[in-house]
């Protein structure tokens, strides 16, 4: 856990710079944080989260979809699901927001140095994993081969597919896409497999003894993937899961985010499977 010197209770001011729609209910928001936030944000590690405030609506935990830029610009990929996210989606460009953080434990990037990395994303789980991909790709010589398997319900819900395809074409990333079902795929559109992530994983040959695997997706995804990964020979210490819980304070106090005796906001949101095996509530 990073030591924080800033006041963790009061949001920094931030400004909404841009909104780019990614699907019917999901958009990528560029948010510029005030200069005082630049230093704490520079310590951000992929997998950590921020508390994003929408004045008048409230505060929600969001895992940034990219590393904060040097001037404090954040890329936040947010799905419209309720009160706060609805307000955010309707906010005018230029309006004021707030950010606290970064909080929590991110991916153990030091330890992953020199290792192949397999990323498994389901649906919106691509958002936190995208910041990990950005991190890994900035220092490609430092890490082994990077593979992303990404499953979405249907092709239109596949986020970032163009940029991911470009990365794959450049040979920077091995990419496998799959959709639960494909209604009618117009010819010329990108192609992907039809099926679930665990099925995709079954036929996949990789260096299970050395790889780190990072997983993020809806809760049922974790349950079906864990047996596959352990069966393939990945040690539980190297299976990294980014978990979601209800969060209010983000700093280990309000107690909404408990899983067993752990608090997702300070002990996670990224956990090793080995840490979770004694916590039946976790998965």
């Amino acid at each position: 856990m990073n030591r924080t010197t800033f006041d963790p209770h009061t949001p920094f001011a931030a400004t909404l710079l841009d909104r780019r729609s990614l699907s019917e209910d999901t958009a990528l928001f560029s948010v510029l944080a005030e200069p005082a936030a630049v230093e704490p944000l520079a310590r951000f590690l992929p997998g950590q989260f921020l508390q994003l405030s929408v004045p008048g609506a409230g505060e929600i935990p969001i895992s940034p979809a990219d590393l904060p830029s040097a001037d404090g610009t954040l890329q936040l990929c947010v799905r419209r699901v309720g009160h706060v996210t609805e307000h955010l989606h309707r906010a005018e460009i230029g309006c004021k927001l707030g950010v606290r953080g970064p909080f929590g434990v991110g991916f153990p990037v030091e330890e992953m140095t020199g290792r192949p990395v397999l990323l498994l994303a389901g649906g919106l789980g691509i958002a936190p994993l995208r910041s990990l991909i950005c991190y890994l790709l900035r220092q490609p010589e430092r890490f082994g081969e990077i593979t992303l398997m990404y499953g979405a319900k249907q092709p239109q819900l596949m986020l970032f597919r163009e940029e991911l395809s470009v990365l794959a074409a450049q040979g920077r990333l091995r990419l496998y896409l799959t959709v639960d079902f494909a209604p009618q795929q117009p010819t010329g559109d990108f192609s992907c497999a039809v099926g679930l992530l665990p099925e995709l994983l079954q036929g996949f040959v990789f260096d299970a003894q050395r790889s780190y695997v990072a997983v993020c997706g809806p809760p049922p995804l974790y349950r079906c993937l864990m047996d596959e990964l352990l069966g393939a020979g990945v040690a539980a210490e190297r299976i990294l899961l980014s978990l979601e819980r209800r969060m209010r304070c983000g700093i280990g106090r309000c107690c909404h985010c408990a899983l067993g005796q752990k608090l997702c906001c300070i002990d996670g949101p990224v956990f090793r499977l080995s840490e979770l095996q004694r916590i039946p509530e976790a998965l």
Binding site: S53, G56, A57, G58, E59, R248, C249, C255
Partner: peptide, 8 residues
């Protein structure tokens, strides 16, 4: 007991 909510 001290669980709390934050409301705006």
């Amino acid at each position: 007991c001290y669980c709390f909510d934050l409301r705006e």
